[in-house]
Nucleic acid binder design. Structure first.
Lengths: 132, 132
DNA sequence: CTGCGACTTGAAGTGCGGTTCAAGTCAAGG
DNA sequence: CCTTGACTTGAACCGCACTTCAAGTCGCAG
């Protein structure tokens, strides 16, 4: 019917996700197939973009159900806007912490302390984030 | 015997980790109790520092067994040094990606697109990281 | 029409990082 | 001495994010 649709196998290959993961995401309501080719799911090309977003968010520490909420949200959902603001602060903290960890790792590679973990410079990473 | 040792309950409270998590870490070889007070585990104060390091690394995406390896490593372990270098690159990429995601979230909070995920500015976050 | 191979389904299994449970043990206080 | 309460143990269970499995179905090539 619509030859611009992409077969699940191709979506899997292009997105780097397993077909089983795509079906799993469908059950969770994160994506949906536009049609079928026989039994085979066929997806709109935009789905690839959506999957990239999903992967990105999941890597960032969002759960799949959080991602689902975000995907379904319109601009008028104030509760969700607030949660995104909260998530932004969370991600900011994470960036700070990971930056310190990166610096510590960078040092660890050339450090001569024994054991490594006792190196005061390495310990910079561990400085507590003031958490509420 | 040594009244500078800290009871597991206090370590749990001070570290923010559950006592069950401490026992779990012990089974995994990440920490060990210095002694016992009856049956109760008693830890050296430095253990709190170690736990902070463990939490930090785990939050950063290290698995507990990776963390165990790092904790046991001396300065002469070249294989480990290489893995740390690799991890440093990994963490760097993550910092970049999270920074983009943070910016997107920051924008999302004030964005008027419907649905939010279609906003081109929001999509900045999704730019693919060149992965090997 | 017959294979073949890539898909389909629901259900069960996996690995991680713990938590929870039941039954038992200990130290201190009354 | 007896209770109380925080610990002890191993084993079972949990949620998440998938993967794997068995059995079945489809489209296409020969």
């Amino acid at each position: 019917m619509d030859d611009t649709l992409i077969d699940i196998g191709d979506v899997a290959r292009q997105s780097g996700l397993a077909a089983s993961a795509l079906r799993f995401y469908e059950r969770k309501g994160l994506i949906q197939a536009e049609g079928r080719n026989g039994l085979r799911r066929a997806y709109r090309p935009e789905t690839l973009e959506r999957l990239a977003l999903i992967s990105c968010a999941r890597d960032a520490g969002f759960t799949l159900s959080e991602i689902g909420e975000f995907l379904r949200a319109g601009p008028s959902d104030e509760r969700l806007r607030a949660r995104m603001a909260a998530k932004e602060r969370e991600v900011s903290q994470r960036v700070d912490q990971l930056t310190r960890l990166r610096d510590s790792l960078r040092h660890a590679v050339v450090c001569t302390h024994d054991p490594l973990v006792e190196c005061p410079e390495f310990k910079q990473a561990v400085r507590r984030v003031p958490q509420g």
